[in-house]
């Protein structure tokens, strides 16, 4: 019998189950795109029937990191840039838990960029939502790695001299097996994409355009948006690396020319997840590690039996 009976209990849920009744301090500004992520996530979790107690939502620091305050589940609000290493360790320790990591563009593409690359490369079976508002929200509007070139802020008074980072391309090259972009202003697509991401057996990266009306004054509301999978103007095969790569590059460039392209860019269902790879080489137990600590009948190995002889 599992020590974690919330996992896969199949109980129907509705969106209210993810709303903490005790309303914590409201910290998001009116009109903030972050509300869109919250709504899409609640919708996706409900649709998939994931109960709050089989989900672990790991966030970074930023306005985006406050997602934990509004979404009721097991949560780990970590430190700036480090949601992914915490999340992926939780996943290998107890693979039955639905692990979702989330954070801002500064959090994930800047300070946590190294973890982003490596978590994608390892292809952990988890979903990673990046609230991309092209700005540092919480610290009051400084330039972020995705701020467009020339973007002025208090810390770059003459405008950014840097090309913005290309998150989709980076993700693909690092090894993510599901890459999508959606926008807070597009709730239906956002929910569908999160459902697919959570169902995907591998690292699913969702670059979520979230407008920040408070600090990103010249930011668009990310409308009108075009879904590249639906539009006749775009023809590409999202299971083909090269075509996906071209489509991503076009999308990233277009955003800074005022055109908002969204959709699924890359989907590789054939690549085994990290857990599968690790189990295949005998480096991860078949039974979740976390269960063992609650199993009174387990015979724990002793170093004396394993190693003492070779020291004699």
């Amino acid at each position: 019998m599992s020590a974690f009976s919330a996992i896969g209990d199949g109980q129907p849920t509705d969106q209210d189950d993810y709303t903490p009744e005790l309303e914590p301090q409201a910290t998001w500004c009116p009109g903030c795109g972050d509300f869109g992520v919250l709504k899409a996530l609640k919708g996706a979790a409900e649709e998939l029937g994931r109960s709050p107690e089989e989900m672990l939502l790991c966030t970074g620091i930023g306005c985006s990191g406050k997602l934990n305050s509004y979404f009721d589940s097991y949560g780990f609000h970590t430190i700036h840039g480090r949601s992914l290493p915490v999340a992926r360790a939780a996943k290998v320790t107890n693979p039955g838990v639905e692990v979702i990591a989330a954070g801002g563009d500064g959090d994930g593409y800047g300070i946590g960029g190294n973890h982003f690359m490596h978590t994608a490369r390892e292809n952990h079976d988890m979903t990673y939502i990046v609230f991309n508002n092209e700005i540092f929200g919480l610290t009051k509007g400084q330039t972020s790695p995705t701020s467009p070139k020339g973007h002025k802020s208090k810390t770059q008074p003459s405008g950014s001299a840097k090309e913005p980072l290309r998150p989709l391309s980076l993700s693909l090259n690092a090894g993510a097996s599901y890459v999508a972009r959606t926008a807070a202003v597009n709730p239906n697509q956002a929910k569908e994409i999160l459902v697919e991401a959570m169902e995907h057996d591998g690292f699913a990266h969702v670059d979520f355009l979230t407008q920040c009306p408070t600090w990103n004054k010249d930011a668009k509301q990310y409308v009108p948006y075009i879904d590249v999978n639906d539009s006749d103007d775009y023809e590409f095969d999202k299971t083909d690396r090269r075509e996906a790569s071209d489509m991503m590059a076009e999308t990233e460039t277009a955003l800074h020319e005022g055109k908002v392209l969204t959709g699924r860019y890359y989907v590789d269902d054939s690549r085994p997840s990290y857990g599968q790879e690790k189990r295949a080489i005998g480096e991860m137990p078949e039974e979740p590690l976390a269960e063992r600590y609650f199993d009174d009948s387990y015979e724990w190995e002793r170093s004396a039996d394993l190693f003492l002889d070779k020291h004699k």
Binding site: A3, F4, A6, I7, E54, N68, S73, G75, N94
Partner: peptide, 15 residues
């Protein structure tokens, strides 16, 4: 409590 346990959900935070 540990994630996945029924009745144990909470928020861990560095704040």
């Amino acid at each position: 409590s540990i994630p996945g346990q029924k009745g144990g959900r909470f928020l861990a935070t560095g704040n």
